[in-house]
């Protein structure tokens, strides 16, 4: 199993933010078998980081590792799309 480094950018504690966090945690546990490092960044608290990472849409998930770097925007409710974005097989 590959090691995943993920960064999730959300805006505050909106329902959409909470949904994205919950959806991502579920996928991490069930499909990544716990081999991941997840950082959640609230852009409202850290706008400079958002600027540095050029995050415009929220939520934005950035798959830092394994390469290639990929951005998945949205609340991650489209589970199949997220799996494709993470280079995982869709069942």
């Amino acid at each position: 199993m590959q090691h995943y480094v993920l960064r999730l950018f959300v805006a505050g504690h909106s329902a959409r933010s909470e949904r994205a966090i919950a959806n991502l945690r579920e996928i991490c546990e069930n499909d990544l078998g716990g081999h991941y490092e997840l950082t959640v960044v609230d852009v409202l608290e850290r706008p400079a980081v958002a600027e540095q990472e050029k995050v415009a849409a929220t939520p934005t998930l950035i798959k830092v590792l394994p390469e290639p770097i990929r951005r998945i925007i949205g609340d991650l409710s489209d589970r199949d799309q997220v799996l494709v974005g993470l280079d995982l097989e869709v069942h």
Binding site: F9, A11, R16, A20, T60, R71, I72, G74, D75, L76
Partner: peptide
């Protein structure tokens, strides 16, 4: 970049 669900541009507005 790909899309998986609904989003907003709160990140941009914040920046």
């Amino acid at each position: 970049q790909m899309t998986a669900g609904t989003f907003d541009l709160e990140g941009l507005l914040t920046r």
